[in-house]
Amino acid sequence: MTRALVATLGLVLALRVSASGTVRVLAKDPKGAPVADAVAFVEALDAPAPVHPPADPVAIVQKDQEFVPYVTPIVVGTRVSFPNKDTVQHHVYSVSPAKKFEIPLYIGESSATILFDRPGPVTLGCNIHDWMVAYVYVLATPYFAKTGADGVADIAGLPPGRYTLELWHPRLAARVDRQITIEASGDTVQEVSVTLRPDRRIRRAPESDGAGYR
């Protein structure tokens, strides 16, 4: 009797496991080079999945007068903290439609947390150090991942169904999306060609005033 119960439970669990799939996204530029820091996400076409923001805030650190990480994907309702590990103050702000906020000059790791309550891209900056820039991408789906240096992002735990796969990157030249289907048994690999705009970040290096003139 007990053996039968265990066997039945195991079968159910196995079916459940096999009933979720993984999308491996390979983001490459037109020359075939991997594209890092792209946010890959899927949204269900049939029944949108609810999002569950994490209980603890996600941290975007300021270190050596840069934001780390450069791109942070989160779900709607997530709180983000901005610990400043530098020895100088920063003034973090965003004027993006999805989230406008500012944390005036501060130092230290216990900054206020900011609630990101609307989906969309949010550009972060420091009002003192103009070269500092980072991005938060706020998602209305729990299924997402960020590409690493190898251009790979794995989105796991997808129930079978029809989805829209989309890719976002701070320098994305044109929207990238496609429809995919997750079968009950199996994973899928999606190779995505991404065209990026030139990297036009503000130069950080200082410049001397050159020769003075009497």
Binding site: D64, R204, A205, P206, E207
Partner: peptide
């Protein structure tokens, strides 16, 4: 620029 914090002019 010669690195993050240095430049030649």
């Amino acid at each position: 620029a010669v690195g993050r914090n240095t430049s030649l002019t």
